[in-house]
Write a protein that binds this DNA or RNA. Structure first.
Lengths: 118, 118
DNA sequence: GACATTACTTACATTTTTTATAGTACCCTA
DNA sequence: TAGGGTACTATAAAAAATGTAAGTAATGTC
């Protein structure tokens, strides 16, 4: 992830596409190695950073942080920090984040079906 | 795109995730800069290589080829070559490819809604 | 004072994806 | 014989995404 170069062709292409195709726009937001897994865990309720980390074994802390930030920026999740020590931070889906539920469900069904025909 | 290194951590992670989450498996298949656009054009019927190229202005021929190959490998589209000169090649969605229609439609709606709240 | 806990951050390396540019084969037409 | 149309391929380079490894802050407990 890191910074994205706003002068690159890639950036321009993504912009242009997202502008005229809402489905591509959507895909840009929830695309990314770990976004969908995170969301599908959060569908069942709020979770702490460490809980997510345990639920998604192979993710590194860096990647988890980055994806959570991106999701937060895009208003898919809400982040709540409790002023405690050691720190406690909870993540939960926003309303529009929660709207992803049926989409994720459909992807799941489609995935199952697709797997079956290999 | 090109080759993927089967010894990388990234490869292993993708595999593991796709194995247990059909929604991630699905996302891996239709993820990629241009896949969804291509599919959403093909939903309306078969198209030739050159037609797709015209419909998707910024895509390079290389990218179009790569994405079409990937979609073909994953049995989302079917490729038909006519032995003519100049060559004619037609692409169309397979049955399971066509099953993506409602998903793309939902992504579209979700995208619209998400755009609205910015 | 050393240590544990939690949710990060930072610097850097590697891998993957995307773009740029220039070809190719084939036959038909002028 | 030259040029045009179609659907590509080859190679290199740029950009983006992901991974590795180490460190930080704050405070309560031993």
């Amino acid at each position: 992830m890191s910074k994205i170069k706003e002068t690159s062709t890639n950036f321009a292409n993504k912009q242009a596409l997202a502008d005229e195709c809402p489905e591509v726009y959507a895909a840009n937001i929830i695309g990314g190695q770990w976004s969908i897994v995170i969301c599908s865990w959060l569908i069942n309720g709020k979770l702490r950073f460490g809980e997510l980390k345990k639920l998604i074994p192979n993710i590194t802390e860096r990647m988890l942080t980055l994806q959570l930030r991106k999701l937060e920026e895009n208003k898919i999740i809400k982040r709540t920090v409790y002023a405690e020590v050691p720190p406690r931070v909870e993540y939960e889906l926003t309303e529009i984040g929660y709207d992803l539920k049926p989409i994720i469900k459909m992807l799941e069904n489609w995935g199952e079906k697709h797997k079956a025909l290999r």
